[in-house]
Design a protein around this nucleic acid. Structure first.
Lengths: 333, 333
DNA sequence: AGTTTATGGCGACGATAAAAGATGTGGCAA
DNA sequence: TTGCCACATCTTTTATCGTCGCCATAAACT
């Protein structure tokens, strides 16, 4: 592979001149620049990015850490991250945190292989993040609660959303509301569950662990959890699925058993993914401002990189999207 | 940020000693190693990955180029890529090709910021790939036809799969078979379309452009294309959707209009995504060996990196998965 | 002669690794 | 027992990796 040295030699100039020419410095004459560019072209020269990064100490890259590259995730959120990153002329790369301490994600974090990081991966430990956080290395976490000088938290108000969903069902006369949860180690799930429980408590509806079934945020798990719920007999009045994917799986399980939603049972989801409005019946759900969360995360990174002060915690609020998967059983109207 | 120099100074040893100690070289005494490790810990030392990569000239990283990080893609395929990469102790990062020549993907390719690349991004031009290919830099393309000494092609036999699907419908007595296509610039789509046309031609069934509707591989586009098809009246006997996502959107559109699949119309998809067997009715489709394709791609990269010779073209075959979305109208049984 | 404009020299950046240097140990002959 | 060398073990010296950018310098203009 040709290096800048070869280019300089072929062009008959000093290395520094070649470097300037190739980096479009103003102080190189047009003639020299052309000579250098031609030499570069004829040698098929490509700069060594690592050498350049090393020298410049900047990478112009933001890393997005996901728990699993192949997994489903919030595409809206990623879009937010992607667009703001691109708008600032930075590169975005994604890496996975599969593999624990040996994962690519941990390496990127610890070795500071980017100028900023957005974390959306519950399987990255808090410790790794705290270890990596430094004044000049902004890290935004979207999936956890973490206090640290150089870690910024952007969070959707899951508790409030879950409370809203539960109250909505309660308001419509539901007595028994099941909760199909996400994975136990998920911070989002934990917050949603507590919103659900708080809402029940406030209305003096007892929480029954029979009505809490563990899923893992996948459609399949929603499907199977719902089958389990059906198998238990005594269907509740409504089911609050910790996310839409699971709710859609649940809808299918109900359909297969000939249980009508919302006539026989009401269903509410969480997230408002694209599909939710197309599903049958259209799913009532809690919308999360996912695009905004992603965009804000990166926006904050650039603020920090520009030396501006930012808050260390942002809370984005949710919104209830009323569609047709919940029936009103209340007598109040 | 502390460098290895600081660590060496604090530990009272030479820089190289510190380097050896931190890299677990056998020639460092236990006592010295401990001293160095302690110094490193107390300084919160993290090595500079770029410097290290520069010196080693290896990155132990494979890059996966996707057309859009936020877009839907073959998660099975990515799983294959991911697992084989990890099994070889390499890192995997994903980047997007949004942004054309300025995209992160192009930068990774041209600057050789990884040891190998897997391309699954129709919006990367052939030219960029050809430009970047070098003997020591294996590039595997999964989404195009490209002849070059250092580019390896792994392809699923789309034409054969589409032919199989079409024949399957023809064999069951279908006379009119609509084709809902993927985007025009997609190589996969193009191959599938030609398989469909070849099969029709062989049986002397005329191809009618009325029966070809353009989608873009998304569920929504399947949904809307199907609505268009329904609006045209004169429903065909069957619809061949260029992928399952669209077929699922189509199923929904049919369901909403009270058109029964497969009684009123038969549906066949392509891909065999996870959801396909859970949908109602379970979708008959062409299974693509996606996991295998991804795994093979990376496997080949490692073969090349190990200096072994590999073919420059691999063709993986498809399989028809018979479920319940196609009815048999043939009188032959 | 003093300023502008182009270009070259050279030392970083941070880490690695080959090769050379510094210890210390044991073996063996006198 | 002593002395000396050979050799193993550990550590330091030194040279890179490829690029960038400060500073110096020389030529060309005012």
């Amino acid at each position: 592979m040709a290096t800048i040295k070869d280019v300089a030699k072929l062009a008959g100039v000093a290395i520094s001149t070649a470097s300037y020419a190739l980096n479009n410095s103003a102080k190189i004459s047009a003639a020299t620049r052309k000579k250098v560019e031609e030499a570069a072209r004829s040698l098929n020269y490509q700069k060594n990015g690592f050498a350049s990064d090393l020298k410049r100490t900047k990478t112009k890259t933001i890393v997005l850490i996901l728990s699993d590259l192949s997994g489903p995730y919030y595409s809206e959120l990623i879009k937010g991250v992607q667009e703001v990153t691109a708008a600032n002329g930075y590169d975005l790369i994604a890496c996975s945190s599969i593999g624990g301490q040996q994962s690519t994600a941990v390496k990127f974090l610890k070795e500071k292989r980017a100028d900023g990081v957005v974390v959306l991966a519950h399987n990255i430990t808090d410790e790794v993040i705290l270890d990596s956080a430094r004044p000049d290395f902004p890290i935004v976490v979207l999936d956890r609660n973490l206090q640290h000088d150089h870690v910024i938290q952007v969070e959707v108000d899951n508790t409030e959303g879950a409370r809203m969903a539960t109250n909505y069902l309660l308001d419509r006369g539901m007595k028994e509301i099941a909760y199909i949860s996400g994975p136990n180690n998920s911070h989002d799930n934990e917050r949603r569950l507590s919103g659900y429980r708080e809402a029940l408590e406030k209305r003096n509806v007892p929480f029954s662990s029979r009505l809490k079934i563990s899923g893992d945020f996948t459609r399949d798990s929603g499907y199977f959890s719902t089958k389990m719920l059906i198998a238990q007999q005594n269907l509740p009045d409504a089911v609050f699925f910790a996310n839409d994917e699971m709710a859609i799986g649940g809808l299918q399980a109900f359909a297969e058993k000939g249980i009508s939603v919302p006539d026989d049972i009401s269903v509410i989801g969480f997230d408002d993914i694209q599909l939710s409005e197309h599903v049958s019946p259209p799913l009532t759900t809690i919308r999360q401002p996912k695009y905004e969360a992603g965009a804000l995360a990166v926006h904050l990174i650039f603020q920090v990189l520009a030396g501006e002060k930012v808050e260390d915690h942002y809370n984005l609020s949710t919104e209830l999207i009323e569609r047709s998967s919940v029936k009103d059983h209340s007598h109040s109207r």
